[in-house]
Design a binder for these strands. Structure first.
Length: 260
DNA sequence: AGTATGACCTGATGGC
DNA sequence: TGCCATCAGGTCATAC
């Protein structure tokens, strides 16, 4: 479910409440989310920081690091009753924090330092400069959308924002990276920054059921120009938006504005 | 080594 | 109403 702007929104609502709080209990329902390894006993351990790392919500504890990926359907919610999709509950003095995840594509990782799979991710899209973006991008030979979805290239872009970015930059999703000129990489970098900033500003995109920890929906879906707009007229040229499949992901674009 | 392809889960939706 | 196929914001293991 959540991509960078949604996770950023979640982290911003989690951090003020959790910072300096002490975990009293952690309870875990056996599920795929844990990949066979549960976190150790965390009772009495203090939360130092909560931050976003790509699409992960990272809890820096006084002892160890808890990293939560929400997958497609994961939610972190305060003070909700348990249900069949509750995978983890952390109790604090004044409130509880629950992880719900219907499809179990999310994951909970623990490490004494940042867990390996998290550390292996590429730079943050909002922190990388133009030169590094260009240098990293041009080391790959693939369809540009596949590059944007590759978390080792950059951490945090997902299907919605890849499609929206490529529309803004007027680049066809299947365009080969080795054929993209420097000027277009510059455009992609610039548009990526404004797109993600605007999406964060709007609290992310709520397509069906995404909500932040306060139960509030984001509103950036109102600003989508191609995602889930199949058949609707392009906002720039009026041509019907097309939907295809690329790497088994629904891919939306304007066939006129985004030529191969 | 880098890239493409199923696999993993459950629920919602749409066509017949 | 029921059944079946398809789709969904993501990664991961395996096959070329």
């Amino acid at each position: 479910m959540p991509e960078l702007p949604e996770v950023e929104t979640i982290v911003r609502s989690l951090a003020p409440r959790l910072k300096a709080q002490i975990i009293r209990t952690g309870r875990y329902q056996p599920s795929r989310v844990f990949r066979g390894t549960f976190p150790p006993e965390l009772a009495g351990v203090r939360v130092a920081e909560v931050r976003r790392y790509g699409k992960y919500v990272v809890f820096d504890l006084d002892r160890g690091v808890l990293a939560v990926h929400l997958g497609m359907t994961g939610k972190l919610l305060f003070d909700v009753p348990a249900n069949r999709y509750t995978r983890a509950v952390w109790e604090f003095d004044e409130f509880s924090l629950s992880l719900e995840d219907i499809r179990q594509f999310g994951r909970v990782l623990w490490g004494e330092t940042i867990p390996g799979p998290v550390a292996a991710l590429g730079p943050d899209p909002l922190e990388i400069n133009r030169g590094d973006f260009f240098r990293r991008a041009t080391t790959y030979r693939t369809a540009v959308k596949a590059l944007l979805l590759n978390q080792r290239f950059l951490r945090g872009m997902g299907n919605i924002y890849a499609d929206e970015l490529l529309f803004r930059a007027r680049v066809h999703p299947e365009r080969r990276t080795e054929l993209i000129p420097t000027s277009v990489w510059t455009t992609l970098w610039r548009e990526m920054n404004t797109l993600l900033a605007e999406a964060i500003q709007a609290g992310g995109s709520s397509i069906s059921d995404y909500v932040n920890t306060a139960g509030e929906k984001g509103s950036f879906q109102l600003q989508h120009q191609v995602y889930a707009k199949k058949g609707q007229p392009c906002r720039r040229c009026g041509t019907a938006i097309q939907k295809t499949t690329l790497q088994q992901r629904g891919t939306h674009f304007c066939p006129r504005c985004q030529e191969r």
